[in-house]
């Protein structure tokens, strides 16, 4: 079983829910938690453990071989991303625009654009008792998160037994990184805050999940602030509201120190247990 925790809006509690849920569940059975918010991974602030290994992530980009090139310009015609352009007698490759599709390389009549590997990030594996934690991290200055997300998911797939629960801490938003982090999971928890901003971005995330034809439910974080519009929205749209995490000052204090809320705040632990019960009722968890 694979569960992704996503949101439209950033800062609504994806990491809080992912780390606390994974930690709590790992006291019952083995769990893999993967931080797929590779542009700013922060699950590692809350999950400490023994470092098992580190693996570099590479992606493939074309490299111009000036001696072989006859300047036919075919490469720039086939590139849909304008990542390869011909300027006079030079071919320029823009790594950050390249999506690694190989078109320019494969279709070059002179083999003057061989693909070469290029380091874009890393995956680190940690272990804390029955909690296996993977952190995907994109190198500073890199713009494309998807290759690192894809590799981190692959790592989680290959390294652990198929039956083990996998929880993905997804990136925020509704663009390619979120799609990559959620497209192959069994269930998605969308976490939001009960405010107009939270609801607005939640609706965008719901649209994406419906487009992907995914099974999903909603958790309200910081329940007690804002208004009841999210609850009303879930009812109107017939989306399961699977949990409400109360708004508490102690939660903010604990979070700011890198602590797990389920350990020290009984109200939050209860809310998490209720989410687990609801996931069982929905047959997401066994």
């Amino acid at each position: 079983m694979k569960i992704a925790i996503a949101s439209g809006k950033g800062g609504t509690g994806k990491t809080t829910l992912a780390t606390n849920l994974a930690h709590l569940l790992s006291q019952k059975f083995p769990v893999v938690l993967a931080d797929l918010d590779v542009e700013e991974p922060n699950s590692g602030f809350f999950i400490k453990g023994e470092k098992i290994q580190e693996k570099k992530v590479f992606r493939m980009i074309p490299e111009w071989d000036q001696d072989k090139c006859v300047l036919c310009g075919n490469c720039q015609r086939v590139c849909k991303f304008n990542a390869v352009i011909k300027l006079g007698e030079e071919i320029l490759v823009f790594n950050q625009l390249c999506h690694g599709c190989y078109a320019c390389s494969e279709l070059c009549p002179q083999n003057a654009l061989p693909m070469t590997s290029y380091e874009v990030g890393k995956i680190t594996e940690f272990r804390q008792n029955d909690l296996h934690f993977l952190e995907g991290r994109l190198n500073v200055g890199e713009e494309q998160a998807v290759p690192v997300i894809k590799e981190t998911i692959n790592f989680a797939e290959k390294k652990f037994a198929p039956g083990i629960l996998r929880i993905f801490d997804a990136p925020p938003g509704t663009s390619c990184p979120v799609i990559e982090a959620t497209k192959d999971v069994d269930y998605i928890i969308l976490i939001t805050e009960p405010t107009p901003f939270g609801l607005y971005d939640l609706k965008l995330a719901v649209e994406v999940m419906r487009e992907l034809k995914k099974d999903f439910g909603i958790v309200i974080n910081r329940h007690g602030i804002g208004n009841n519009d999210v609850i009303r929205y879930c009812k109107d749209e017939r989306i399961p509201l699977i949990g409400k995490i109360p708004n508490m000052k102690t939660a903010a204090e604990t979070y700011a120190k890198g602590g797990l809320l389920s350990e020290t705040i009984p109200e939050i632990r209860n809310a998490l247990e209720k989410i687990i019960d609801n996931l069982r009722t929905l047959e997401v968890l066994s």
């Binding site: 849909k80 304008n82 990542a83 300027l87």
Partner: peptide, 15 residues
């Protein structure tokens, strides 16, 4: 109509 790489594309036109 261009989603990606407008900068290099216009630069080429200018070039």
């Amino acid at each position: 109509e261009v989603a990606h790489g407008a900068g290099p594309r216009t630069a080429q036109k200018l070039f």
